[in-house]
Design a protein around this nucleic acid. Structure first.
Lengths: 339, 339
DNA sequence: CTGTTAGCGCCTTCAA
DNA sequence: TTGAAGGCGCTAACAG
């Protein structure tokens, strides 16, 4: 791999001159510039970003940590972040925690060693000590939480407007005439799940419907577990709910499996609304009414905020953490049609 | 961000000693080791991988280039590669080309500047000059092509056993009693598409069914375009095909939309088989019979080969390119059931 | 076992 | 406008 020195030798100039034409920051006379460019082409020279980063202490790299990028929501988030980063000449290194606390710890440590200039993180579902993240921020590496927001973490965060999104879904079910509406959540250790639960409750109260603890089923993000939970609940209940609201995709999949296994279909036997798209195309049945999060925008917005922190880092006092909440939209399909 | 020197000072030892306890390569006496570890904890020291890489000229980083990781097949591939990399202490930097030739060029250049030790690449659908990749390999950066295999590129490659996979799908349709089987492909500039087409033809011939050019529809990987193409074909044909085989996911989505828009459903009106899973869960209808590629294994295997190249690089003659073809499996569902 | 030191490739003053 | 030189933080000899 040729170095800047070899380019300089071939072009018959000093390394400084080569550096100047590469960066474009300092003007170089036409003839020298051409000679240098010719040498670069000839040697197929690619500036060593590693050396550049060491010198400038800027890696032009961001990290993004997600639970599992095979969950369709996350690739969109990553793409949004990638686009924002690309515009700034940054690249992105994306890693999966598989919702493990230990793994998340290792990955944060790794990214820190890689000297990424900022980190976007969807915290793992496993209860995670926020101390590590706090230290990261104190060490001057900005962190933006997205999607899932941990409690008591003084970091910027970008996610969906959880409460109103859940209200939107619940209101819709109520409008469609459903009254006995169950909710299936993921782990309540995640703030979002709590907020969505809260939106659901508010919506019911506003409509004068009693909030029934029997209809609040708290699971996790593993479809198998949720399926078992829902089956047990459905079978044990004296009166079945007439509709179900799920607060995230994996949970919804589990719940739908349970319905199928109980011989119930939607919307015929039960109304159904969930957060997050379950299929890539709406030609599939059952067509599920969905509370769609602006995944791409969440990633894009989060990266944008991260850049503000990165750029503003030199100077000014530390600004208070920003909390961005983007609105969800409701995609009404068959599953919430009252029959 | 503390440096090794600060750790050394705090622990009252030399930087060499700190380096030794961090790497574990050279034994250090118990008392000193403890002091160093204490200093590391105290300062929250994270070794600077950038400096390390510059010194050792090993970044312990791999690049992976995919067309678009929001296509569900690719996250699995990436995860497979990530797992293999993780085991070797490597990390992965994943980027999307959006099937653009220019973008791919920039990304290869970027990864090269980042000094990744090897690159996994799913080449862009846009016709791409392979020269850049050849140069990369000549420069000593191993490249493994996966999924899509460009012609005439002396690189390792890992993909599915295209011909027999297509045969498997076609044979299945034939067995189910279908005779007038159409095929919808992506761009024929991709070798895989050609091979799958070839498998389809072989299968028909072996069954004594004439290969009808009218039933070979060549599109691209944009569902909208494919939908338009299929609609036009279906409407203009005197005799409709009784089944369709699609050679990839996006193409299949387009084709299914066309069927819907023509008022046809599967399997009632037409049999349907496609490469690649279209939904995350088989509780959705229509349940499509699918030729499933071992996506995770493709990524894992490709990374494994890459490591062999990376490790074997020092010494030996250059080995001939390896061509790995993994078998697909057939997931039979409703869409191919003859009614 | 421990300390010292010379670069890895590049950028960035600083002089000329 | 061009060239020379000092590190960035770390590892890997090598010397003690």
């Amino acid at each position: 791999m040729p170095t800047i020195k070899e380019v300089a030798d071939l072009a018959g100039v000093s390394v400084g001159t080569v550096s100047h034409v590469v960066s474009g920051a300092v003007p170089v006379s036409e003839p020298l510039r051409l000679k240098v460019q010719e040498a670069i082409r000839e040697l197929d020279y690619h500036p060593n970003h590693v050396a550049r980063s060491l010198k400038t202490s800027r890696t032009r790299t961001l990290g993004i940590i997600v639970p599992d990028m095979t969950i369709s929501f996350y690739p969109l988030v990553i793409r949004g972040a990638e686009t924002a980063a690309w515009k700034q000449g940054y690249s992105l290194i994306a890693v999966n925690t598989m919702d493990g606390a230990e793994r998340q710890k290792e990955l944060l440590s790794l990214l820190r060693s890689q000297r990424v200039e900022g980190i976007l993180v969807v915290v793992a579902a496993a209860p995670v000590p926020v101390l590590q993240i706090t230290r990261l921020i104190e060490a001057g590496i900005p962190v933006v939480c997205l999607d899932r927001i941990p409690e008591k973490l003084p970091a910027d965060s970008v996610s969906v407007e959880d409460v109103s999104a859940a209200e939107m879904g619940t209101d819709h079910l109520i409008e469609m005439g459903y009254r006995r509406i169950a909710i299936v959540t993921g782990p309540l250790s995640l703030t979002n799940e709590n907020r969505r639960l809260q939106g659901y409750e508010q919506s019911l109260r506003r409509a004068g419907i009693a909030v029934d603890p029997e209809l609040m089923w708290h699971g996790n993000v593993r479809p198998e577990d949720v399926a078992a939970l829902c089956q047990q609940k459905i079978r044990s209940l004296a009166i079945r709910p007439d509709a179900i609201l799920c607060t995230n995709g994996p949970t919804a999949l589990g719940c739908l499996r349970a319905l199928r296994d109980c011989g119930l279909s939607t919307p015929e036997d039960i109304g159904f609304v969930t957060f997050d798209e379950l299929t890539v195309d709406d030609l599939f049945q059952p067509a599920i009414t969905t509370i769609v999060q602006p995944a791409y925008e969440i990633g894009f917005e989060a990266a944008t905020i991260l850049f503000e922190r990165i750029q503003g880092k030199s100077g000014e006092e530390i600004l208070a953490p920003r909390t961005i909440r983007l609105p969800a939209s409701l995609k009404v399909r068959e599953s919430s049609r009252r029959l």
